[in-house]
Design a protein around this nucleic acid. Sequence first.
DNA 1: GTCTATAGGAGGATAGAC
DNA 2: GTCTATCCTCCTATAGAC
Lengths: 192, 192
Amino acid sequence: MLQAREEAIIQTVNRLLADKGFDAMTVDEVAADVGIAKASLYKHFPSKEDLAAAAMVSVMRRAQAFLDGLPAQDSPQDKLRAVVAWTMGLKLAGEMPSLPSQNSSLRATLMAHKDYMDGLMDVSDRLGAWIEAAQANGALNAKLPAIAVLYTLFARACDPVLEFLKIGGQHSDEEIIALVLSTCFDGLSARA
Amino acid sequence: MLQAREEAIIQTVNRLLADKGFDAMTVDEVAADVGIAKASLYKHFPSKEDLAAAAMVSVMRRAQAFLDGLPAQDSPQDKLRAVVAWTMGLKLAGEMPSLPSQNSSLRATLMAHKDYMDGLMDVSDRLGAWIEAAQANGALNAKLPAIAVLYTLFARACDPVLEFLKIGGQHSDEEIIALVLSTCFDGLSARA
DNA sequence: GTCTATAGGAGGATAGAC
DNA sequence: GTCTATCCTCCTATAGAC
């Protein structure tokens, strides 16, 4: 019951964060959408920052579940592509919370949030291992620092190119994902 | 005199926008940094949105000047690489204003701002022509829609990978630019 | 735990004197 | 055009009854 209500809150926060971003989202709005009073909301979560953190934890758990479900026989590079495609699908579906990359109070709350940091570390470690494996087997460019590759993959979760192409209306979500996957892994330059 | 003061204002706004973004920047702060009263600021610019628009126009003019200065004998693809490198250098130097991609009032002001829109159109047209030329001569992947390539290049101006690598402290600005240029044009996958 | 009501403060914008 | 002082709205957060 309490669990279910908090789930509903998190889902609303998640959608609003994807829609308008952290700054534009108001707590009044969250409460109204969930259908409870603002004061009740604050009984569940102590601050707006914690609301956002809870949404991020939720997304992180979904990501971990997706990683768990990837076929073990897939190559590391295929797994990486699949994760990026999944992330972009989430964003195009309006389910990827967008946080300001520069916000002191929010960053502090996130970094203090054990569940979030643990999830982030776990995902980073697993992706990092696949990146190094893919570099070792010659699929990924071994001259790139693995951390730069990891950041480049993570960055697809907040890539404005996706929304611009979606606004353009010339392509389906699947086409957009394929397009950006191509620019990400194959680059803009022609391949021999 | 008036011109010089407005230049100083724009420069301050530009730096603050690069530092903290539009939402976190306060008009009080701008006034304090410039060294005038807030009311005086509002004699020069009618709203916070117009402050940001002025900063964007300023950056757009710098971009146009950079395009003008590119050697005519350079290939289209070399010009494109140079523009992207210049953009990323601006960002790493803390001189690239960062605006929320989702903000109704700001977007409306920007779209209504003739100087900004004219500059944006001019830059887009010139880059677009180079993109199509580079696709025609086989340097860029001709299967990608030109508009997607253009967005991908523009997106380097707000790429969080740059700041993450800078925070990491393992690379100089030049190395970071080279690295991201490589992931952008050559992709993450190994080349034959 | 839910509500109504309100505190408290930040920040965009303006009044009016000089 | 610059200042001081102030308005006013919005928003986070809390008090206190039930």
